[in-house]
């Protein structure tokens, strides 16, 4: 089952490689791969955040077992997104990169999201989980902040073009997923599980 999730999460990368080899990335390939990796990082973030509500609703442990891998794939696509920007947009000019990070709010938010993902990726091992104990839980709640900064990054990127249709949908999904963490909503979600339990 885990292998299936792994292969599915690799599909966006497979697609980019396939399109690249067949010269089908369009007139502006750099823009295409930048946007594609950014979009997939966000999609995987949404899927990762959906695991807890799905566990609450179904009571099945499968969802939580896939969560680590999905979270790492979120980091993987965010890393690609960041590296493409650093290499092909900034040409590894660190001074120019810092200038942009400090001056442009949309880049600030994207950069912050990426930086916050790093400790989560590093402490994703079972060993770190055991070592950190309760602190691990607290640390990994950072993902809620990252979800917000990622949406702001996307929102500000689109705002100047007045083209907010798609980002509004993502924002709504993120708000819904975060709302599932509120105790009130959380309790409601577990009620769905009641029929499953009674059947046993």
């Amino acid at each position: 089952m885990k292998i299936l999730v792994f292969l599915l999460a690799l599909l966006p990368l497979d697609r980019l490689v396939w399109l690249g080899l067949n010269d089908e990335l369009g007139a502006n390939p750099i823009e295409f791969i930048t946007r594609s990796t950014g979009t997939w990082a966000l999609v995987l973030l949404c899927i990762t955040l959906a695991m807890t509500p799905l566990r609450l609703i179904t009571g099945l442990p499968f969802w939580i077992k896939s969560r680590r891998m999905l979270g790492l794939f979120t980091f993987f696509y965010a890393l690609l997104h960041f590296l493409i920007w650093l290499w092909l947009d900034q040409d590894f000019d660190w001074a120019a990169m810092w200038h942009d990070v400090l001056k442009r709010p949309f880049i600030t938010m994207g950069f912050a999201s990426f930086v916050m993902l790093i400790p989560l990726a590093i402490t994703s091992t079972r060993w770190a989980q055991r070592k950190l104990g309760r602190r691990w839980m607290h640390l990994h709640r950072l993902i809620y902040v990252i979800a917000c900064t990622a949406i702001l990054h996307y929102w500000w990127h689109k705002a100047g073009k007045n083209d907010l249709g798609t980002v509004t949908i993502y924002a709504a999904v993120i708000i819904l997923l975060l709302a599932c963490r509120l105790p009130l909503v959380r309790n409601k979600l577990t009620l769905f599980r009641a029929p499953f339990i009674r059947q046993k």
Binding site: A27, N28, I30, E31, D100, R104, F106, G160
Partner: peptide, 11 residues
Amino acid sequence: PRWSQASERRI
């Protein structure tokens, strides 16, 4: 405001 105009990517 959101990017530098010092350089451009030639399509």
